[in-house]
Computed example of a mutant assay.
Amino acid sequence: MSKTCRYFGISRTTFYKWYKRYKGSGIEGLYDKPKTPKNRRKPTIRNKYQQIIIKIRKKYPTWSKEKIAKYLEIEKGIKISPSTVYRVLKQTKLIEKTRSIRLEKKEKDK
Rank of each mutant, 00 (worst) to 15 (best):
K42S: 04
K33N: 14
E28N: 12
T13E: 14
N47W: 05
K48R: 12
T98V: 12
P61T: 13
L30R: 06
R102S: 09
L72T: 04
S64I: 00
Y60L: 09
Y49P: 00
T92M: 08
I56G: 03
T36P: 00
Y22K: 15
K23C: 14
I54K: 07
K55V: 02
R6K: 12
R41E: 10
I56F: 08
I56N: 01
D32E: 06
Q51M: 04
F15R: 13
I56E: 07
E96F: 09
Y86F: 12
T92P: 04
G77H: 03
R46K: 08
G77C: 04
Y22R: 05
Y16Q: 15
G29M: 03
S81R: 07
S11D: 09
K90Q: 10
G77S: 07
I74L: 05
K59L: 07
L89H: 03
I80F: 02
T92R: 14
S83Q: 09
P37D: 08
L94Y: 04
I80S: 00
R41S: 06
F8C: 11
K48A: 07
G24Y: 06
E104L: 15
N39Y: 14
S11V: 01
L103E: 13
K70L: 13
A69W: 01
F8P: 01
Y31W: 14
I54F: 01
Q91R: 13
I27V: 08
K35Q: 06
S64R: 05
R99D: 12
S2F: 04
Y7T: 09
I95T: 08
K17D: 14
P34V: 07
G77W: 02
R6G: 04
F8E: 03
S11C: 10
I74D: 14
Q51E: 12
S100M: 10
I68A: 05
I74V: 15
K106L: 09
E96M: 12
K79L: 10
I78F: 01
R21K: 10
K70S: 13
L30A: 08
I78N: 00
N39M: 10
Y86P: 01
K42V: 09
L89R: 02
T4Y: 14
Q50E: 11
K20H: 15
I27R: 11
K106C: 01
Y22D: 01
R21Q: 15
K97C: 09
Q50H: 05
I56Q: 03
Y60D: 03
I68F: 02
Y60C: 01
T13Q: 14
S100E: 14
P37N: 15
K33Y: 13
I27H: 10
E96D: 15
T44K: 07
K20M: 03
C5T: 05
D32T: 15
K65L: 04
E75H: 11
S64G: 12
P37E: 10
N39I: 15
K79E: 06
W18I: 12
S11H: 12
V88W: 01
S11K: 08
E104N: 14
T62H: 04
E75D: 13
K65D: 09
S100Y: 13
S81A: 11
P43I: 01
R46T: 10
G24F: 06
T98W: 08
P61M: 02
E104P: 02
L89N: 05
